[in-house]
């Protein structure tokens, strides 16, 4: 007998459910098919401006920095200014996301924009988030050639663009948007929920920023999109 049959057999014997096999299968199929929401914290259920404020407040609490940008076309200059203000070399790396690639990078000719996944030698990674959940200031990022996952973790600085219209109250709303986005109900290989820059409290329970991932997380909220 295979390990699979052994383990499943032990589980089935252990459960010895009073329900019929059919009722059990129906209960599971229903739950998976309808994926009902449980209690969702009320804090995110506010108007759009208050939601953006909540998102910024929660992200700030966990040491992310948040900047609002009036228009996507301002992004190249905003990003260049971020690098300048921190004395970083004038280069960054990003994926193939059209929402980033189509920006007027020619406005900042001194900035070198590299493309593709990171090999660990980049100072700054630039990503476009799928969305943000205001309840905890959490960004949702999807893997793929548009936004390679290595950019989220290897560079010291992670700059993430998110559209104001993609900042929602809670995780459930983003899961539903993702179900629509993915269509065939298979998630991308990696979905990263990111809440602040990397940290560790493993030495005497003292919180220190910049463990293995980025030391800084900078979020740019684009308000015209």
């Amino acid at each position: 007998m295979s390990q699979r049959e052994t383990v499943l057999g032990k589980i089935r014997r252990g459960l010895a459910s009073a329900k019929t096999a059919e009722a059990r299968r129906d209960a599971v199929a229903q739950r998976l098919g309808q994926h009902p929401a449980n209690t969702v914290p009320a804090r995110g259920h506010v108007g759009q401006q208050a939601r953006l404020d909540l998102f910024a407040k929660m992200a700030g609490k966990v040491s992310a920095t948040v900047e609002r940008v009036a228009s996507a076309s301002d992004l190249p200059e905003t990003v260049a200014e971020y690098l300048r203000a921190r004395n970083l070399p004038s280069d960054l790396r990003m994926g193939a996301d059209r929402r980033l690639a189509d920006l007027p990078w020619e406005k900042v000719p001194q900035l070198e924009v590299k493309h593709g996944p990171s090999d660990g030698r980049d100072h700054v990674g630039l990503s476009h988030a799928f969305g943000g959940a205001a309840e905890t200031g959490t960004l949702f990022l999807l893997s793929g050639p548009d936004n390679p996952t290595t950019l989220n973790f290897l560079p010291d600085h992670h700059v993430v663009v998110v559209r104001a219209s993609d900042i929602v109250g809670d995780y459930e709303t983003l899961w539903n948007r993702l179900r629509e986005h993915s269509g065939d109900d298979v998630l991308p290989r990696t979905v990263n929920l990111i809440t602040g820059p990397s940290r560790s409290a493993d030495i005497e329970q003292t919180l220190l920023l910049g463990a293995h991932g980025p030391r800084a997380l900078h979020i740019l909220i684009v308000e015209d999109a």
Binding site: T136, T190, T195, G213
Partner: peptide, 10 residues
């Protein structure tokens, strides 16, 4: 409120 990195791998 939430851990820094919550990662879904599929």
């Amino acid at each position: 409120e939430l851990s820094v990195y919550t990662t879904f791998s599929t």
